[in-house]
Amino acid sequence: MAHEHERSRAAGVLAFGYVPHKPDVSRTWGRLAAAAQLRGRPRPMNDMWIAVTCIACGASWHDAVHRTAIANRCMSYGAAGACSPLPCPLHAGTALYDLDVNQGESLCLCTLCRDYGDTEERSPADLTTIEHVQQHGWSVMMVPADDQGPGWAYTIGLWHSYRMPEVAIFGLEMAMSHECLNNLGAATRDGTPLEVEQARADVIERYAVQLKLVSQGWHRAFFGQTIDFYRRTPIPFLQVVWPDRHGRFPWEPHSDEQVRTFQPQLWQSPKDHPVGVWTQDL
């Protein structure tokens, strides 16, 4: 019933009246959702229903983009390499992922984009984070190691500033973690996108790292300040996975024990992750 309601809402926006369910609507939605997930930029489910309905109900491609901000946001999955381009169903030869729409209109509900009326209640740490995001585009939150386990660090602000996933790194010294995430933030600011399964040689000297999509079930355990900043979950997160001294990653045979124990496997769902130090806060 929720899907029928959203389809009707989309059609109303475009003055087409009620649009009954059609299989091609569901198929288009599925392909959009998969592409967004692979790219590390998932979108709200109902927003995508509105977007694909605008296309399927007979609106021109650009009319659907310009007459609804929601459709505009959802048609911005375009990114080279995420998956094969999805042709516009109304304009043969036009690739959905190649259209230059969006222009920064993706939904952001963070404390900089919305007035929640609680500015005076924010802690000095919160205000410092906001200042860093305003000045630099992102901030780095660090959680030092303690007797409970290794530390980690993660960004706040990449989604707000660049509509790119936030990134997190685990098990390194805090100074190195801070440098690694700042390297990724600076590259993002300068135009290098953050992509799922991306190998990056610009993070740690002499070693490549790999970016893995974090399963949503881990967000509250590790990224509480990011959730507080955006006032919602999930914001897409990528884990920066580092290799051992021989360049072997945790999932590869014969990788060092340290590289496997000092980093969680957040690309797995919590229920599939080995029980241990990384699952204690779930």
Rank of each mutant, 00 (worst) to 15 (best):
L211H: 03
A71H: 08
S84R: 10
Q268C: 07
T94S: 07
L172A: 10
L238V: 07
I227L: 09
H5S: 03
A15Q: 15
V140R: 08
G217I: 10
R163V: 04
S161H: 02
P85C: 13
A208N: 04
A35S: 10
Y97E: 15
G12T: 08
S8T: 13
C180Y: 04
R260A: 02
R189E: 08
W267K: 01
K271V: 15
G40P: 03
E205V: 07
R7Q: 09
R73F: 00
E179N: 09
V203Y: 03
T111P: 00
G93L: 09
F223K: 02
W61A: 14
P20W: 08
Q210M: 14
S76A: 15
T119A: 14
H273W: 04
M45A: 14
D147A: 15
W49H: 12
S26N: 07
P193I: 13
A34Y: 11
N72A: 13
E121N: 04
L266C: 10
R9P: 00
G185F: 08
S8H: 09
R41N: 03
L282E: 05
H136Y: 11
F237W: 10
E6C: 00
P20H: 12
W267F: 06
H246M: 15
A221G: 03
D228I: 02
P236G: 04
Y18K: 11
G81W: 08
L158Q: 01
G151E: 11
D228P: 00
S84W: 09
M45I: 09
E195R: 13
G276E: 09
A82L: 13
M174F: 01
Y116G: 04
T233Y: 08
Y154H: 15
W138A: 13
T119Y: 05
Y97G: 15
L213C: 05
G247K: 09
Y77F: 11
S8K: 11
D244Q: 12
P44V: 00
E257C: 00
K22Y: 03
M45V: 12
P85I: 01
D47W: 04
E166M: 01
T261F: 05
D118C: 00
F262P: 01
I55S: 12
G247F: 13
A10L: 01
L181Y: 10
A186Q: 10
I156E: 03
G78E: 11
A186F: 04
S177L: 03
A34M: 14
R73L: 00
H160P: 03
S8W: 07
A71G: 13
D47F: 02
L38D: 07
F249I: 03
Q134E: 13
S106M: 12
F229V: 07
T119C: 09
A82F: 14
V25K: 01
G81K: 07
L282C: 14
H132N: 11
K212I: 03
Y162W: 15
Q216E: 09
Q280A: 14
Y97C: 14
T119W: 11
